[in-house]
Amino acid sequence: MENTEFETINTILFLTLNDIYPIATGRAGMLASNNPYVSFPFLRFRFKDKGKDDQIYGQIRETVNSFKGLLSWEMITFDDVPNYLILPTYVYSDGRPTSGGLNEHLIAKYGENLYRQMIDQAIEDIPNLAKAIKDKFHAQ
């Protein structure tokens, strides 16, 4: 994958959401830029001046959760954090690990080859997921 294509895929979801409403969080990329297999893909975000219970999050969650890609995706949050996460469903399918790194947990659960394949599938899904969100908000 070329670097420009990688950067586009890495930031397209952030840019799509930021076009809907300004994002307050700083990390725009979904992938580790030096090696996409270092970590599972995710976007951590929250909107400026929007409470965690604002309806905009529900609309995005509905679109993310109903997205039909190579993987299933979800938008989640935890009570103890102000941000939301958009990520493949498999990441937290066992809940939050109590100890150890989440990537190590996923590699142990799925094996290195399947784990890498799921990251490749996520990379393929991300632009289509961004388009689904964009289409939902431009249709309103």
Rank of each mutant, 00 (worst) to 15 (best):
A28H: 01
L31R: 02
L31T: 02
S33V: 09
N34H: 05
N35R: 06
P36E: 04
Y37T: 12
Y37Q: 10
Y37D: 06
F40H: 09
R44M: 09
R44G: 03
D49L: 08
K50C: 00
G51R: 14
K52S: 06
D53I: 05
D54A: 15
I56G: 11
I60A: 02
R61T: 09
T63N: 00
V64R: 03
V64N: 01
N65Y: 05
L70D: 13
E74M: 02
M75C: 05
I76K: 08
T77F: 11
T77W: 09
F78T: 11
D80K: 13
V81A: 01
V81D: 00
P82N: 10
Y84Q: 01
L85C: 04
L85D: 08
L85I: 03
L87S: 12
Y92W: 10
D94L: 03
D94G: 02
G95L: 03
G95I: 09
T98R: 15
G100D: 11
N103F: 00
H105M: 15
H105Q: 15
H105E: 15
H105S: 15
K109H: 15
G111H: 03
G111W: 05
E112L: 15
N113K: 14
Q117L: 13
Q117H: 13
Q121F: 10
I123S: 10
D125Q: 14
I126N: 13
I126T: 05
N128Q: 14
K131V: 03
A132E: 00
